[in-house]
Design a binder for these strands. Structure first.
Length: 211
DNA sequence: ATATCGATTATCT
DNA sequence: GATAATCGATATG
């Protein structure tokens, strides 16, 4: 899979019904979709190549496990909205809420293959693009992709990702993955054995691989 | 090449 | 006071 092409206007936004389902189903089908940010004439786009499913109150590893709080309220709300949280004092991470309103569930977006706005992403990340290898530093990891897209909690938490007018949305350009693998989720201690991480094994932008 | 560790804050015990 | 859905820098083989 080569660094791609994403002309403006390619692909419509994924609709509400897509997200109103079990996070495991949503996670699997999000692979290959495109995260798009368009604001102030700047276009950023990246293909989703790695995600994790976080289930509802019954999943000990999920932020939803403790019930609704001010921090996690978005994942108890309507589907297709951005849940953005701050972790390790340094990084924001982007999730999409799943399930109908009132039922918790979300998908964490963990890695993207850059498609458009590479220069802007490099600037946002403070990365010098010397070679193709440096592209991996832009969006291969949840904190990295958030920084590359300028995603923060004050700015983006609660945004409707099915609405292009919000400036941040998920598009379907028709790409369909050939293969999908599942693995345990990264960086958790509870329910650590569950196979709820979904990746495109043929894509070099999946996090954790060698540089 | 792998291993360890510090940064820095929201949330919970 | 401890921990966390991370990253990047530094140390060491």
């Amino acid at each position: 899979m080569k660094p791609g092409h994403f002309p403006e206007g390619t692909g419509g936004a994924v609709g509400r019904d897509f997200f109103a389902r079990d996070p495991r189903r949503v996670a699997r089908e999000l692979l290959g979709k495109v995260l798009v940010r368009r604001e102030g004439g700047e276009l950023l786009a990246g293909r989703i190549v790695e995600v994790e499913a976080y289930l509802g109150t019954g999943d000990p590893a999920a932020h939803a496990a403790a019930g609704p709080t001010p921090r996690n309220s978005v994942i108890f709300g309507p589907p297709g909205h951005a849940y953005v949280y701050f972790i390790y004092g340094n990084h924001y991470c982007l999730n999409v809420s799943c399930q109908p309103g009132g039922t918790a569930g979300c998908v964490l977006i963990r890695a993207l293959e850059p498609l458009a706005g590479v220069q802007a992403m490099a600037r946002a990340r403070g990365v010098a693009l010397k070679g193709l290898r440096d592209l991996r530093k832009l969006t291969s990891g949840p904190g990295r992709l958030a920084e590359a897209f300028g995603i923060t909690r004050p700015r983006d938490n609660g945004k409707d990702l099915t609405n292009r007018a919000a400036g941040l949305w998920i598009a379907d350009d028709g790409f369909r993955p050939r293969r999908i693998h599942t693995t345990p989720r990264i960086g958790i201690r509870k329910a650590a054995e569950r196979q709820l991480r979904y990746i495109l094994p043929d894509n070099s932008f999946v996090s954790g691989k060698k540089l």
